[in-house]
Amino acid sequence: MSASTEETREPDLLYTRTEEDLRAAVRSLLADRCDASSVLARVESGTPYEPRLWKSLAADIGAAGLLVPEELGGQGAGHREAAVVLEELGRGVAPVPYLTSAVVATQTLLALPAQDGPVAGLLGDLATGDRVAVLAVPFSVGPFAVGPGAARPAGVRADGPQGAVTGVADATAADVLLVPAADGLYAVETGSGGVAVEPVVPLDLTRPLATVTLARTAGTRLADGASSAAAVRRGLLAGAGLLASEQLGIAEWCLAETVRHTKERHQFNRPIGSFQGLKHRLAHLWLEVVSARAAARNAADTLAADSPDAPLAVAIAKAYCSKAAVHAAEECVQLHGGIGMTWEHPAHLYLKRAKADSLAYGTAGHHRASVAGLVELPAP
């Protein structure tokens, strides 16, 4: 008796030529429109989003539609390609709503039982970047915490979206909110009556958070309660899995920047990178980054193949990459010495993004406990 395709399929962690071409296009765009000085200037102004950057990334390159099938107006690619985009966005700490809209919200809509009517129209708009949608759940909610009654606004009623949700990422940039309510999933226009989006002060200024309050709000019901719970879980699973790729990009930039600095910075007539203690620290960090790449690529690959191993791969990747990104950012700040502590150097942006990402879509502890449950071992 032959094994199924999912059981026999080997993970592919290598990048294809298409993926590398996509990486080159995104990296070139970010180098032109999203260098460190421009990101610092925008976050200091309190308006981190750059509409022209989003249009170029989403529409001109077509990155917003990578997960959307061609028949619905998308690129018909998959999670592997979206993961490459997120690696580059992490490398540039780019302030764009790609993860929340093009991945989480889009995957939630694609997981609904039917992609027709308002769902198809919204997916088409998201694929072209004409609109931004955000799933109205706290940024900290992990996929394994979602079930019946979970990840809904406070005080929901059976007749539609009501209540308040705190810590919603990128809500200030959203045109549409996907609201899990007691009786299903609703699409709510942010400009409609009864919707209030109040920004809160986030740790990571490049990814704003907000409190969303819904009162007597009219929305379009997209699915019933059972279907919406499964779709939300699927959206958050994709978000957590591909967030690991963003964390990989953060770690890669921090390692490369720290190596460059330690080669150029001299003490006692020697580059500080030649000191044995620093060599050991950088070598250890390199090993962590390589392992993080393997974990993140495996998560993206299993999500792309819709493998039954995807939840386990995602939990492992998110738990490992969270720690690796924070460690890389901490080392970047420390090994830059005094300059690493200044506001003018971008190291603090990477540390804040790494710390915020480590809490997003489930903490490392949440995912480690999930790994224990998935492999039927007692949790710590």
Results as ranks from 00 to 15, higher is better:
165 V>F: 06
263 K>W: 04
278 L>D: 02
358 S>A: 12
20 E>F: 11
240 A>R: 06
326 V>M: 08
247 Q>M: 15
27 R>D: 11
76 G>L: 01
188 V>E: 03
163 G>Q: 07
312 L>P: 08
27 R>A: 13
228 S>C: 09
251 A>K: 07
57 L>N: 03
128 T>P: 04
161 P>I: 10
28 S>H: 13
357 D>F: 05
223 A>E: 03
58 A>G: 01
174 A>V: 00
60 D>F: 00
180 P>W: 05
296 A>S: 13
203 L>C: 10
316 I>S: 12
273 G>V: 03
62 G>C: 05
337 G>H: 12
271 P>E: 12
179 V>A: 07
113 P>M: 10
36 A>P: 09
266 H>Q: 13
26 V>E: 04
170 D>K: 05
375 V>D: 06
294 A>E: 13
70 E>W: 01
132 V>I: 15
27 R>Q: 10
264 E>H: 13
305 A>K: 08
108 T>A: 05
209 L>K: 04
26 V>N: 02
330 E>P: 05
318 K>T: 01
224 D>E: 13
124 G>E: 01
367 H>M: 11
55 K>W: 09
14 L>G: 15
165 V>P: 00
340 G>P: 02
45 S>F: 04
234 R>D: 09
14 L>Y: 10
139 F>P: 04
126 L>S: 04
356 A>P: 04
367 H>Q: 13
202 P>I: 10
234 R>F: 01
274 S>M: 14
371 V>R: 12
271 P>D: 11
235 G>M: 03
351 L>C: 10
181 A>W: 06
41 A>W: 04
29 L>P: 03
71 E>N: 04
145 A>T: 14
81 E>Q: 15
212 V>W: 02
356 A>K: 09
84 V>F: 05
67 L>R: 02
221 R>W: 07
372 A>H: 04
193 G>W: 08
307 S>T: 10
229 A>C: 07
282 L>C: 11
126 L>W: 03
35 D>E: 13
143 P>E: 06
206 T>E: 09
270 R>H: 09
92 G>D: 09
205 L>D: 00
272 I>W: 09
204 D>I: 05
136 A>N: 08
94 A>F: 02
238 A>Y: 02
28 S>L: 12
370 S>C: 13
17 R>G: 09
171 A>L: 09
193 G>P: 05
117 G>I: 00
267 Q>N: 00
340 G>E: 07
370 S>Y: 08
92 G>E: 02
288 E>M: 13
